[in-house]
Write a protein that binds this DNA or RNA. Sequence first.
RNA 1: GCCUGGGUGGCGGAAUAGGUAGACGCAAGGGACUUAAAAUCCCUCGGUCCUUAGUGGCUGUACGAGUUCGAUUCUCGUCCCAGGCACCA
Length: 862
Amino acid sequence: MKERYIPEEIETKWQASWELSKIYKVTEDFNKKKYYLLEMFPYPSGKIHIGHVRNYTIGDVVARYKHMRGFNVLHPMGWDAFGMPAENAAIANRTHPARWTYSNIDAMRNQLKKMGFSYDWDREITTCRPEYYRWEQWLFLKMYENGMAYRKESYVNWCEPCQTVLANEQVEAGLCWRCSNPVRQKKLSQWFFKITDFAEDLLIHCDLLPGWPEKVVAMQKNWIGKSAGAEIRFRIENSTEDIVVFTTRQDTIFGATFMCLAPEHPLVQKLSKGTSFESAVNVFVERILMQDRSGKEMESYEKEGVFTGSWCINPMTGRRMPIYTANFALMGYGTGAVMSVPAHDQRDFDFARKYNLDIVVVVKPEGSDLDSFSMTEAYPGEGIMVNSGAFNGLRNTEALESIADYLEANNLGKRTVSFRLRDWGISRQRYWGTPIPMIHCDSCGVVPVPESDLPIILPEDADLQEGGQSPLPMLEYFKKTKCPKCGNSSARRETDTMDTFVESSWYFQRYCSPDYYEGMFDPAADNYWMPVDQYIGGVEHAILHLLYSRYFTRVLNVFRLVSYKEPFTHLLTQGMVCKETVLCPEHGFLFPEEATEGKDRKCKLCGNLIEIGRVEKMSKSKKNVVDPSTLLTKYGADTTRLFCLFASPPERSLEWSEQGVEGSFRFLNRIWRLAHAWMPYIKYVSTFDGEIDDLEPDLRGVYKKIHQTIFKVTTDIEDRFHFNTAISAVMELVNMLHGFQIEDWSIQKTSLFRQAIETVILLLSPVTPHISEEIWFELGNETSIYEASWPKHSESALIKDTLLVVVQINGKLRSKFIVTPDTEDEAIKEKALSDERIQKFISGKTVKKVVVVQKKLVNIVL
RNA sequence: GCCUGGGUGGCGGAAUAGGUAGACGCAAGGGACUUAAAAUCCCUCGGUCCUUAGUGGCUGUACGAGUUCGAUUCUCGUCCCAGGCACCA
């Protein structure tokens, strides 16, 4: 028998061979059907983690499978290389973000290569390279020219001691993550992409993405958040100005008793100016704007506000309504003004009770009463209109329409829709990102960099400061420039960089022609490869990354750079990788082996009972991380890949189990032994290529099992990516083969068994390419198994020559028997009724009814 | 609060145009081989009951109803878990 299965040997051997022969290199072949398989590219943090391994293994199986099915498969890999961690690491390790990033990329590329993924490495992309981001700058200019990129004042999280802008993730409970001082909101002029122009289009097309998980589609729809309602004008007393509100509840307008404006609303200053309320208003507005209004704390803020000193008139009732500015009114939604109906909105209700404002009920629940004095909470539900003049007695759902009609007819307002989606703020006061190609000139204002000056290269010799603020504004030679319009040499370059989500919004197009230097991508290549047929990645990107990518594709479509609107036809979001965590009340999180086994687990250090022992997402602080590189040395890539797929279906979370990995390793050993035990017999015969009837009867079962397995594995992969059940089907086949001795060989038997072994390794080759390749070559093949065709099942082998019929009495299983497929239902019924075991149950009783399900089941009802 | 998913043995998970619940694997127990161990191979494995140990009875897919000859699967209600959104007027 051949020596032991030593994964390290065969894996390094084949990886080197594949790399040398560039077997995974792909070119546009217009005669072949293309398949673009993409996995979300990683941030080069330094090490591949197990989540990457899972993600890329799933993708690799599909890529290899599709290739074997005859598709021309594009399967690229690259690096989402800009971002904050590089800056932090650079400060902590006294290095440079570029150096840190590039060396991480080298390390991670090596790790990926050890996993045996079928990437075309000639198409590798690194987003922090000028060859890449210059086209992003180019697109920015084009968007600016067309009004899709604009500048406006906006609030950012600002830490005064650190003199820096903080990302939302860097604000912890309202405090700076670095110095723990309070974070305040600071107004800065920033760049935005006008994604809201596409809100409707992005929403409509959500329903045209049948290849996406419903969950993700629902999340996208929610995020875009369309509401239908009306805009209504309220006249301000003693003023020529109006307040326009947006509401979805115009049916409740008769109950509107006061008005709330967002603190940033321009009318707030105007109305209070010069009145006795001015200072109180200013103090309030100043205080609210200091608060972090983006974090989770917001929900706990009590409703509060101050009177502006002005009144407006309810257009339906003529009632005078006091105008407040309130913390719960948001400038970013609707018009920034709310008509408050305390009886039917909880926030308005709380506010009214606090400031002793009138509450008027205008919708009553059907069949019961509602009283504004005794009610303890708002009634937001449906009901019958009251206190609403001509609309009394209508259902409020009808009034919604008739009041909208009335408002439109009398020119008081109009139907409209509102989205919760906001424009995409892309300015980052950060160093490690794509420079925004704009220039500020004292005489000309904001001037775009001429296209011929691109790329604006991010200087790589900047020193990062403790505290984290960007060094770009301090770099005179970068900042100081000539105005392209007037030539004034005191112009200043924009020193903000772009959000890293911009890079990841078009990288999939760049993969089609990564070295193209005349534009973002070669139109011919893009036309051939795009859209992505299958995209695979974590759910954590279900909203932002995917939405931004869909948006970018629309922008490119408007510019006629691409012909399609949706970049990803099918999407698979894989689940997290989890592992058991163990928490000791005294020692904190433990490695699982530091606790005893069994039910009442104890800490081995102190003997205390374990507080929590449950399965959670892997994280360093919880000491439940698995490092892929130790798995590779211990078991090899094939076992690691096999376990990732076998342990659970891809969209669910995967629970890591060391014993499960052992089990996968055992299975590969089993195949290895089986193949080598038979190798001397099967090596020199050709694969059986006859039909089932050509075989001796006792071999037909094996033939059938082979073809059933092909069918099962193919449909499991093709229809639903259920690799776990596909693998278990192969296990069943292997288990069956194990029962056979090959010594008493005949030509027919050995050629059939060669087919069996070939089938096993062909079906497994997308999952475990190295061991499959090794056995494939030992069988005498001279080209890679990757180039082999996916096996085809024989239809005739799937036809059953006997059928099992189960017999139930009142739905309970009582007996079963075997019939030939040509047996009539009537005969099956007779056989069931005369069955010995059935007779025991039915003798002496009346059979009320007999249900026969075609050649499958008989149910006798007593 | 709203929107998604999900709840099946000791564990990961199979099985849904309604038709044998628990495939495959892990763990556990027993046995074979061995001087011994590892490795390997074979058997048992949801619970429970039996003076007949069986191709046995009952029970069992979060809980409670319903539809049906028949429900893990469909409908309604309840509970629990995970994820997402959240002062969106």
